[in-house]
Write a protein that binds this DNA or RNA. Structure first.
Length: 292
DNA sequence: CTTCTTGTTACTGA
DNA sequence: ATCAGTAACAAGAA
């Protein structure tokens, strides 16, 4: 499940590969994931001048057109870049039928291509997604402003200060702390993996209500949000099931996971065992002894 | 066959 | 208004 560190890793990879490359065309292989109608054909002879990230959402800015291309990978979406050379060597892409478009690029099976961007020089960027939850959308500047409003503060930006964090907490006193961390309208980009890891690092039980947190605990939580996300970006994210970067490589944070996906295993801090429960409709992993 | 999983949105009822 | 809970989405894994 790509969360902030994974999306940031993808963004960095994409910037290196596709900025300023002239776009030849878009292929909408699966109509379900492309939320616009025929309108996208307007984008011609343009290129991307910058790629931004809003929480878990990728924002592609065009050089000439004021529209923005948005890509959300949801749970199993992947963006895989393939150079012309690679494509010539390996790909046998069956046009239109993604279930048959099986190939092996960048060590990844591109079995579920839903969308791709073709560059004039022959390079391609594929959106591969088994479960079809991902989406691609082109929006005008006005729509983008509205979308932006739905996202909370960026936890790795200087905007995310202790003061802002404390203010958010007091605005949501009755919320469960795990649900608080997952709420994209408050802090953008934290998902199920990092919410569990941040709470473990802070030794705070995911069951706790925001109102029960002592000021010292809030401080620790604030520092760990920054620390864990920053470290995960440095490690190029966590590959638990499907996530890969634009090269098709796994993330390096997997072996640093302390609780996520470790239910039943020994806690790395004490002699207890990691427990898995359900909070806010999500599988939640924690150590009942360390986390209070 | 059923159940579980996940990010997000939408809905319900408290 | 705010919150928890749940269904929906899709499809693979167990």
């Amino acid at each position: 499940m790509p969360e902030l560190p994974e999306i940031e890793t993808i963004r960095n990879g994409l910037r290196r590969f596709i900025l300023n490359k002239e776009i030849f065309s878009f292929d909408v292989v699966d109509k379900k994931i492309f939320l616009n109608d025929i309108f996208y054909k307007k984008i011609k002879n343009d290129s991307f001048w910058e790629i931004d990230r809003l929480g878990k959402l990728l924002v592609f800015n065009f050089k000439k057109n004021s529209c923005k291309l948005l890509i959300h990978l949801k749970m199993t979406g992947q963006l895989i870049f393939c150079s012309k050379k690679k494509i010539l060597n390996k790909v046998v892409l069956m046009g239109g039928h993604s279930d048959k478009a099986s190939t092996n690029l960048n060590c990844q099976n591109l079995k579920y291509i839903r969308f791709n961007i073709n560059f004039k020089n022959g390079d391609k960027l594929f959106l591969n997604d088994a479960r079809r939850f991902a989406y691609v959308k082109i929006v005008d500047p006005g729509e983008f402003i509205e979308i932006k409003k739905k996202f909370g503060v960026e936890p790795l930006s200087p905007d995310f200060s202790k003061i802002i964090f404390f203010k958010l907490l007091t605005k949501r006193e009755n919320k469960n702390i795990k649900a608080f961390l997952l709420d994209q309208k408050l802090i953008a980009g934290i998902g199920n993996i990092y919410a569990d890891e941040i709470l473990f690092a802070s030794q705070i039980s995911p069951i706790r209500k925001v109102s029960s947190l002592k000021s010292e605990e809030k401080n620790i939580l604030f520092l760990n949000i920054k620390k864990i996300l920053k470290l995960a970006v440095e490690k190029r994210g966590t590959t638990f099931s499907d996530y890969v970067d634009v090269y098709g490589r796994s993330g390096g944070f997997l072996k640093l996971l302390k609780v996520y996906g470790r239910d039943g295993e020994k806690c790395l801090k004490c002699k207890g065992h990691i427990k898995k429960i359900k909070i806010a409709g999500r599988g939640t992993h924690y150590c009942p002894i360390c986390q209070r």
